[in-house]
């Protein structure tokens, strides 16, 4: 399969590394052989029908290096708006979209996915912004162009939460789901609880350790969790046909307002504060907010953990725990989608 990768941050690099590391296994177990015919980062694009060497691509993405445009087959890109056209004519079979998640401007990534599918490429999205704002449009594009759209890396990284959600809904009636889906907030809340720190100092500590980004808003204001909640609800599907739910339909409250005092109060009652996503299948309402949960309960997951609890009418509650983030975890999810596409498209 000829691949085009957009975005060479930690996940993009992780995908190339995993493709190299698992090359023999992918070929022997699944008959999947890949060739990288195109890559793009924020400043440039490189195309080569015969395949770009992964090592060279990784080389130009080292700190201080000049990026994709400096590759022998590379060139600068005047505008990101040109990228959809480049992808559509790249001759690739699969687009792997790993661009930055920009919830307030999801259009560039959405346009890349639509252009790729319009040109007959299968697509793998790890970017939550398009899936959580334009799910219906993207699935329509996949259907009319008879291509596959996969996005399992958007939720739970290496933990196949979307797969579980769909499998559960296929056989039973969904009552609702609850989940903890964001590692950064989980870490900050754990820090505040264990050390009695304020939100600000816990955030600073998280940033120092690489748990939180310089601009932490996406995580601490709950948007990352809200996007994932919308994607789970659309994918399962937890909503009736013809209805859609976007991140903007999720009532979202972040953790900035949680104080050390709140933690102490919760602790006194045998509880702990977590940023919980919840979806009620009766009212079709979704929310993300700090909630007190009993210490030791299923939602009381450790700092690096994610959990999805699915409540079914007959089967009761199902739970899936796993590590929710990390470059290689997410890259593994991308490879999972790639193998899935290769097997499904046969």
């Amino acid at each position: 399969m000829r691949l085009f990768i957009v975005g060479l941050g930690v996940v993009g690099k992780g995908v190339l590394e995993l493709l190299d590391a698992r090359r023999a296994e992918l070929a022997s177990h699944f008959g999947v052989e890949t060739r990288l015919v195109g890559v793009a980062d924020s400043k440039g694009v490189a195309l080569c029908e015969d395949g770009l060497a992964h090592a060279e691509v990784l080389g130009v993405k080292r700190p201080g290096a000049a990026g994709v445009a400096s590759l022998p087959d590379g060139r600068p890109l005047a505008s990101q708006d040109d990228l959809p056209e480049v992808i559509a004519h790249s001759g690739a079979d699969v687009l792997i979209e790993l661009g930055p998640t920009q919830m307030r401007s999801p259009r560039p990534a959405t346009d890349r996915l639509l252009a790729a599918m319009g040109a007959g490429l299968h697509v793998i999205g790890a970017n939550k912004a398009p899936l959580s704002t334009a799910f219906a449009a993207l699935t329509e594009a996949a259907a009319v162009n008879n291509v596959l759209l996969r996005y399992s890396a958007t939720v739970g990284a290496g933990t196949p939460m979307l797969t579980l959600a769909r499998a559960a809904v296929m056989g039973d009636t969904l009552v609702g789901f609850r989940a903890i889906l964001n590692g950064t907030t989980n870490f900050i809340l754990s820090q505040m609880r264990s050390s009695g720190a304020t939100f600000d100092s816990a955030l600073a500590e998280a940033q120092r350790l690489g748990w939180a980004e310089a601009d932490p808003s996406n995580d601490v204001d709950g948007w990352d969790t809200a996007m994932k909640t919308a994607i789970i609800a659309c994918h399962a599907p937890a909503i009736p046909p013809g209805r859609s739910i976007s991140v903007h339909d999720v009532r979202t409250v972040g953790i900035r307002g949680v104080s050390a005092r709140d933690h102490a109060d919760a602790e006194a009652q045998g509880q702990v504060i977590k940023l919980v996503a919840s979806f009620d299948a009766t009212t079709l309402s979704a929310r993300v907010e700090p909630v007190r949960v009993p210490i030791g309960s299923r939602l009381d997951v450790p700092a690096g953990g994610n959990v999805l609890l699915i409540d079914l009418k007959h089967a009761g509650e199902l739970a899936l725990f796993g590590r929710g983030a990390g470059a290689h975890e997410t890259a593994a999810a991308v490879l999972r989608d790639l193998v899935d596409i290769a097997l499904s498209a046969r």
Partner: peptide
């Protein structure tokens, strides 16, 4: 729309999203 020139069918979900945008 799809490519059925003369009587093309709108790709409704994509159209609704793009028009809104």
């Amino acid at each position: 729309t799809n490519n059925h020139f003369g009587e093309a069918d709108p790709l409704m979900d994509i159209s609704l999203m793009q028009v809104r945008d």
